[in-house]
Design a protein around this nucleic acid. Sequence first.
DNA 1: ACCTGAACACCGTTCAAGT
DNA 2: ACCTGAACACCGTTCAAGT
Lengths: 236, 236
Amino acid sequence: MAGRPTSTRRERGSLSTEDILDAAFAVAGTTGVDGMSVPEVAKHMGVGVTSIYWHFRKKDDLVRSMSDRAVRTVVAALPVPTTGQDVREFLENYFRQLRDVHRRNDVLTDLTWTRIRSYSLDSTHVLYHHIEVILEFMIGAGFVPLTAWNSFSTGYTFTRGVVVGERIQHLNHSPILRDTVSKLLDHDTMPILSELLSNDGIMLAMVSDTEFDHGLRLILDGIVASGDARLRSGRG
Amino acid sequence: MAGRPTSTRRERGSLSTEDILDAAFAVAGTTGVDGMSVPEVAKHMGVGVTSIYWHFRKKDDLVRSMSDRAVRTVVAALPVPTTGQDVREFLENYFRQLRDVHRRNDVLTDLTWTRIRSYSLDSTHVLYHHIEVILEFMIGAGFVPLTAWNSFSTGYTFTRGVVVGERIQHLNHSPILRDTVSKLLDHDTMPILSELLSNDGIMLAMVSDTEFDHGLRLILDGIVASGDARLRSGRG
DNA sequence: ACCTGAACACCGTTCAAGT
DNA sequence: ACCTGAACACCGTTCAAGT
């Protein structure tokens, strides 16, 4: 009652685009990026819907700005190589962190990897400058530029596959989950999978720690081998 | 004029769920799964909107049924191993086809890999029976079951990463595309990437043929090596 | 059992103001 | 320059019928 303002109109400048983005992320955090509506963001801030349309001409523009911030958030959470660091050690840590950032925040995944909005040139610049640094580090460790690029790409793409797969699995409430598994995999028609499920603890979605660890190790082995081959031929 | 029906009401049974699915896929093909609306599907069929709601209680149910059909379509398009076939040859072909099915039809990708609906137990059964056959084949060629599973998973997940990445890139109209690339990668701040782009024809999105081929080869090398190790230790 | 229009709540977006 | 409510077209869904 005491907190209720006399004037119903906000003062000019009281509504910054950053505040709107904060609210948008808050709403998207509970409803998902798809479920987020402009009216709900407005309600969350206690402003009229149309006020938001002054700062962002279309909902698309708002989502684009969210993606922008998301890219920077992800990049900021990733490790940077230190000179002299072991390549394998760095990359393993890098891809694990890449997976973890996304696991911690679904909205980031939606905005950068599954939603279909582009982000600004500025953020793209941030992203690729970050990759440039990693390539530089790998080349310093003996990689040919193209091999460094392809190697990094492989790990990056694999990690995206894992993250997206896990995202689908969760939002799905899919029958891939443990409890319903027995109903669909009887031992008679699928002996191998049903053995793997009961004895080796795999998950049908292929995106649990087991599969990620195995895939990452396989890829890192390959990457290191291609780097070593270079070093050997370079020396010989 | 002659084609215009006298009665405005459709006869009972004239509207099958399969017909609705056909129409839904047709609409989704032009508007995308996100853009598809129930009214538009109805208009496409020349029926009232509510008629569709008799067959599918919610739009969600309709999309779920679409996902169901999508899973079967994808599985049907994938190769099946023949006894005695070379494992590497089969897997390479398999993952290439997996990528190609999705490249040919974005709607399939949306429904099975980026949209967040589950599909029926029946379709899940179809999908995993199909994987069971591949595992059986790999085990027949000397793989330990768990290694076969993990190996297959790695290739599958990597391919999903490539497909999803390409899907984002296209729907993005992103600055990752060739023409705008020069604006964001000047040679001074990103010498390595700008060299790679001009000399080696890489694509920043990391999902072109170059990166897919390299990643797939790297992964297949690793898979074959793990299979061989088994054979050697089994013999030794 | 199957098809239909009217009706409702909600969303994206625009307009014509207000300060 | 910045904030606002009224208004519009469109969507998902329900209801109360029609045959």
